[in-house]
Amino acid sequence: MEVTLSVNGTSHTLDVPDNALLVEVLRERLGLTGTHVGCDTSQCGACVVHMDGRAVKSCTVLAGQADGADVTTIEGIGTADELHPMQEAFRECHALQCGFCTPGMIMAAIDLVQTNGNLDEQAVRDGLEGNLCRCTGYHNIVRAVLAARDNM
């Protein structure tokens, strides 16, 4: 079937299988491999992207459901020279180690900051419950989100 999506500001019309997932379209068809797959039960959050402005698990969205949507991935929020404040905060606070959960974590954190007026540490911890990280113990991720909160 044919789907049309806008990804990081560029419109793509693609012929995909009916059972294609959004994450498969992003990774395999558009080469946007920054979005990762870390589980098969929709829980780890490594695949989080923004769809029409909200954080979603791209492994749990069918391509058909994303037809007509505006999708933003980790590749679309900033560049090496002009990082998004959340990317910058992750680097500055050492909020990543192996980097595998990082794209999903950053996309989740951006939505969290954008939709919550007054985030404190507990709200950040609660807000990130849909994203697993095995490296950092979350300590520096929480610091980074709180730092970015003040710069976004």
């Binding site: 946007l32 900033g78 090496a80 990082l83 990317q87 980097g99 595998f100 990082t102």
Partner: peptide, 9 residues
């Protein structure tokens, strides 16, 4: 980190 935070890992 430059590559990991931009999805270029």
């Amino acid at each position: 980190d430059a590559r990991f935070i931009t999805g270029a890992g």
